[in-house]
Simulated scan of single mutants.
Amino acid sequence: MNRMQRSVVDKADFKVADQCLRRFGLRMPSSKNTSPVNYPKNADYAGWLGPRDVEKYGYQGPPGMRDEAWAAQDGRRAFIIPSNIDAAYTGLGKKVVKGIKVPDGGCANEAERALNVGTPSPDGSGAAKPRDHKQMLGLMDSASEVAFKDPRLTEVDERWSMCMRGRGYSYSSPDRAENDPRWEKEIDPETRRHAVTSLEIKTAVADEDCRREINYFGVRLAVYADAQNRIIAANRDKISRLQTLMKIRYANARKILGLRPE
């Protein structure tokens, strides 16, 4: 499912949840962003620093980037659930709101059920349950676990470390450089961002140069592709059902939004 299709599904989810909440005299927050997520989906897997614009922002990237990177996984941005809709939306706590019974799992699950009409469960046991589609993310995590054990990652980290030593920096891996505690000394509690120092920027620029020089991104992508292929080979039936689930959810979303079938 591409970013545009994921956005359509998110908009349909929002619409059904909002219609559900209206029964309680409530509404989804107007700040809920359902536009397509443009952040490169595999940037973090590849260790690509391009979206961070390190010459200006250091390792933390521009404002909002981390949230976009997280949303790129399934195309849906997180949002803060206002306290006034929490019980009706999540289905947790109160079972009756304003004298009206809350649907099982709240309005969030009502939206999921609308999207899942006619979809198969990933294990083939029957109809899909709310958020069954997120099992695809679990398979992606499994591929990551396989990839992290690949000796090619250790080897490319060593080459990167040697390159950085030639530029006057001592780190065993890019992860150590990104998470150097010196970068996190002054964090604004409201923005969750830290003050970027000249040292962080210089380090991040040298880091990005070294990653390019040794083809760090290419090696990591190759490793992850191999790991993903191993997970696919071991879960072909499940992945096939998940692909069908995603296609039907998208078709259902178009119906919900009054769009013509593709």
Rank of each mutant, 00 (worst) to 15 (best):
R6E: 10
R6Q: 14
D10E: 12
K11L: 02
D13M: 14
V16R: 02
L26T: 09
M28Q: 02
M28D: 07
S31T: 15
P36F: 03
V37F: 10
Y45R: 13
A46E: 13
G47L: 05
W48P: 00
G50V: 06
Q60I: 13
G61F: 07
P62D: 06
D67C: 02
R77Y: 11
A87F: 05
A88N: 02
Y89R: 05
K98V: 12
K98S: 15
K98I: 05
G99R: 08
I100S: 01
N109R: 02
E110P: 02
E110A: 14
A111M: 04
R113L: 10
A114P: 03
L115H: 09
L115R: 06
G126F: 00
A128S: 14
M136D: 09
M140G: 11
S142N: 10
A147Q: 08
D150A: 03
E155A: 15
E155I: 05
V156K: 05
R159D: 09
W160Y: 12
M162L: 13
C163S: 01
M164D: 06
Y169F: 15
S172M: 07
N179S: 07
D180T: 06
E186T: 10
R192W: 09
L199A: 13
A204N: 07
D209M: 13
D209K: 14
D209L: 09
R211M: 15
R211Q: 15
F217C: 04
G218H: 07
Q228W: 11
Q228M: 13
N229I: 00
I232C: 01
A234E: 15
R236I: 12
D237A: 15
D237M: 12
S240C: 00
R241T: 05
M246P: 00
I248N: 02
R249Y: 01
N252P: 11
L259D: 06
R260L: 06
P261H: 03
E262L: 12
